[in-house]
Simulated assay, not measured.
Amino acid sequence: MLYYPDALSNELNDQIKWANVYEEFTKHPALAQFVKGNDYIAAEIFSRLQFVLPEAIKETHLLDGIYSSLKLNTSYKVSSAAITMFKVIASEKINLPHDSIQVFRELISQKTKDVIDSIETLPLKYPADKRTVDHFKNSYEYINSDYSKGKLINSNAPEIEFLWCSNPEIKKLSDTKGKVVIIDFWATWCSPCVGSFPNVRMLQERYKEYPVIIIGITSPQGYHMDRKNRARYDTKDDPEKEFSYMPSFMKDMEITWEIAFSKTTVFNPQYGVRGIPHVAIIDTKGIVRYNELRPYDDPSHEAEKIDALLKEAGLPFPANPISTR
């Protein structure tokens, strides 16, 4: 094992060299003319950032070059790549000052709005279907959300209205106020989501007698994946049909917690959901206390957080730590 630190050090040194070359590219005097006429290359400038080690980014002035480059081109591809890039820029591993993150966010927001305006006002020049338009509108909402502004944690949980819920009494997220709420964004096609079910089931078993509710939130996908029979059922433009498959899916998959279909896409921009599964925990007052948790991790980590929130609210909680065996 003695070789590992050296291997890591060598990788970091290589990454710093690559980041310096990357920075020089973003500052090349010919770049402006080049990217204005090539949306693909322009987008690559930003999408490639996710493959650079955060430690290497911190050792260079690469982000200065990235910011300058972002001003040069407005296109579908650039906007999409910039949204992905924002997740990297805002990460704790890079640890940029809040104000610097917000400067990036505001520029990306403007770029995304420019794309939306182009789609809506120049449809002949920028042909796009409804799905494309909805994608960019969702991105615009995401980049302007409290999540992206760094204000979601310790703020009121954004409301989520449900089209269908396994508990008919729950019409919207705020109907659960007074309990500790775990919301797990997922979909039937998502293998990591399904793979995390045993952990979620463990949490449900632990808290079934306590003021805790777990809701797996999905949204109409246009099709349903039947995991038991390995079948895919088309439900395009027929959400009621999609809802009808869920009770049997819950039985087949031994889902013991609540499931709901939301009006908003499962990739909920208000909670910063860019990939699933994605878990948030809300306290009894309806305040978001944790976000971006992963249910396939050891459930004891979530249990510790839930126990602490119950204790804080003066409510009963399990006396013993969760057993994961």
Rank of each mutant, 00 (worst) to 15 (best):
E302R: 13
I119P: 04
P269K: 07
P299A: 05
E258G: 09
P277N: 11
S323E: 14
Q15C: 05
P127N: 05
L163F: 07
E59W: 05
I322G: 02
D226S: 02
I101M: 14
D237P: 01
E24G: 13
T26I: 01
H301W: 11
K208W: 10
L63W: 03
E44N: 11
P295M: 04
L203F: 04
W257H: 11
R48E: 14
N199W: 06
S300V: 12
I143H: 08
S219Y: 05
V288S: 06
D99H: 14
F46D: 02
A43N: 02
L124K: 15
E258S: 12
P239A: 02
H61E: 14
V78F: 04
G65T: 05
S248N: 13
Y126T: 07
L152Q: 06
K87E: 15
T264K: 13
K87S: 14
L309I: 01
S47L: 09
A128Y: 09
I41Q: 13
P239C: 05
I116Q: 10
K311E: 09
K77Q: 15
S79P: 08
K241H: 04
Q102W: 06
F34S: 10
T84Y: 10
A32E: 14
N156I: 13
R201S: 15
D238V: 06
V103F: 11
G65I: 03
A128E: 03
L96Y: 05
K263W: 08
I83G: 02
